[in-house]
Design a protein around this nucleic acid. Structure first.
Lengths: 199, 199
DNA sequence: CGGATCCTTGAGTGGGCTCAAAATTAGTGG
DNA sequence: CCACTAATTTTGAGCCCACTCAAGGATCCG
């Protein structure tokens, strides 16, 4: 109803968009994480994009106006609704900002293709955690630890591994002091994790 | 010099763009294939995008003006030079067409992430060949066969496998009648190959 | 015709998967 | 606050797909 700041809430495991839907607005995540994923007929799932607080979800709706793949809230989500009409009617920063975001997403996807195609389990998990650490803007907690609200199954569906193997990899990283696990919460100590170098 | 149709040629294995370069024009491939790739310090290579005749290379230069990763001619290439200034000065179809292409590339990358993360060797190679067959616009030869000018090493660097294993997979597909190999040329019989279904 | 690149084949290895079960944690309703 | 259930994490044993290493044949190119 009110134009400037419509807010929408989603619960964990609730769909933000479903394939084929026409989209007339995009969301800016204010709080919580979301993902775009793909489900194979036999149940295998692969997450193709992660959306963190501050991200626009999904930029390409500006161009295509249609959702190709399902988008899911991975935690509770609070998002600002940004109607496409609003953006188009003010053809200044808004469009540019979003197109820039699209390029960012593309580059991140390219890097991820490299990881999935050519890197082993430890490298993939490390790179994911390093990327998330960087995107969260450095440390959150006072002790340089930042919180990852993902299930080990979720991580597995990002890095293309099984939950069991992700668990074993995380145990290795834990012994290296790179991550901590308190209850069901994953804490990452950023810095040392190797970001994906390439040429 | 001449504005409307500047043409540029590249030989096989010649770089079309190198990382960090400023780009003031994009190319439209008239003939030949190209790819964007990433090289890890230890020599592992992963191809992230394939450009076929008719494709614009690379659309995101319109927005970023900079090459992030190297682009390589995989065969002899003849390309039309499209200066970015030309596109921006005629803000009609040109921009829209290119942005549409960008979305296409993004969706193809998403599908490829699914393949690399969740599919086995046979599925990946089949999907690649099916995708190429579709993008080449159906059959080229009179017999419903289309030609793939890629090395088995090139294919390996797309699907994230070793050349040796790609060879064994292709032999399986050959016995299934899905592909033919004449000398060093790969011929694909499209139709039956399963395109990546997802939901 | 020589050299380089590419394709092919074989034997052995290993990283990540599968299957299965137990332990821990989160969530729910009374 | 507690009992109960569901979801997640953890651990173990065995297996298989794709890799590695190595050598020999084809094919291309100058």
């Amino acid at each position: 109803m009110d134009l400037p700041t419509a807010i929408k809430h989603f619960r964990r495991q609730q769909h933000i968009a479903r394939p084929g839907e026409t989209r007339t607005a995009i969301y800016r995540l204010e709080e919580g994480w979301a993902c775009r994923y793909s489900l194979l007929p036999d149940g295998r799932r692969q997450i193709t994009v992660l959306y963190l607080p501050g991200d626009y979800c999904e930029p390409q709706w500006l161009l295509s106006g249609k959702a190709e793949l399902p988008v899911l809230a991975m935690t509770g989500v609070r998002a600002t609704v940004v109607p496409l009409a609003t953006i188009h009617s003010q053809p200044g920063d808004g469009v540019k900002r979003l197109l820039g975001d699209m390029v960012q997403v593309m580059e991140r996807q390219s890097r991820w293709i490299v990881s999935l195609g050519r890197k082993n389990a430890v490298e993939r998990v490390s790179e994911l955690l390093a990327d998330l650490y960087a995107r969260l803007g450095g440390a959150q907690g006072a002790d340089g630890l930042c919180t990852i609200p993902l299930t080990q199954r979720d991580i597995a569906d990002v890095v293309g591994l099984t939950p069991v193997h992700v668990n074993r990899v995380l145990q290795g990283l834990r012994q290296s002091g790179l991550v901590e696990i308190r209850g069901r919460t994953l804490l990452v100590r950023g810095e040392q994790l190797p970001l994906g170098a390439a040429a």
